[in-house]
């Protein structure tokens, strides 16, 4: 029986702790386990932009995807593979909580592992942090690594 675990990464120290915990779980489960690494670039289709931003959006998106892939996702995959752990990675634009949950459902994952959100201030108080939103809306169990 195979087991998939979705891991949210953002290149931060906290994200690395989530990855370390996922790695430990994968080792305990054994070679049946696949880690699905997801790095989300926070983005909304309903923001207001200038005409110039729109005209260069396609190239910025490409840069964002490449940068997240080379800085965050690929190094993580390589380190996991070096330890004999199966892993896939992807970079997406959108709402973090919503996308992590979608991928968990799509890959039939056992659980989602994320780090405790580092957001503070008014927006986190009003709209809730990414982690809190994920815990509230997720269809699969969520582990929050502190």
């Amino acid at each position: 029986m195979s087991a998939t675990i979705v891991v949210g990464l953002d290149g931060s120290e906290a994200g690395n702790r989530a990855l370390a915990y996922a790695k430990r779980l994968a080792t305990l489960i054994g070679e049946e386990c696949t880690l699905e690494l997801v790095c989300v670039v926070e983005w909304s289709p309903y923001t207001f932009q200038t005409a110039e931003e729109n005209a260069t959006r396609k190239s910025h998106r490409k840069t964002e995807l490449e940068s997240a892939n080379t800085r965050v996702v690929q190094p993580a995959i390589e380190s996991l593979k070096a330890d004999g752990i199966k892993a896939n990675g992807r970079v997406l634009h959108g709402k973090v909580a919503q996308l992590l949950n979608n991928i968990a459902v799509e890959t039939n994952a056992e659980q989602v592992i994320v780090a405790r959100s580092s957001e503070q201030g008014l927006s986190a108080r009003v709209f809730g942090s990414v982690t809190a939103n994920l815990v509230m809306s997720s269809n699969v169990p969520v582990t929050v690594v502190s």
Partner: peptide, 20 residues
């Protein structure tokens, strides 16, 4: 965004083009 392909997320949406 009912007809927007999720794979195009991060590009300029219809909403953004309209509001700009």
């Amino acid at each position: 965004g009912d007809y927007s392909n999720p794979n195009d997320a991060g590009e300029v949406s219809h909403f953004q083009a309209l509001t700009t």
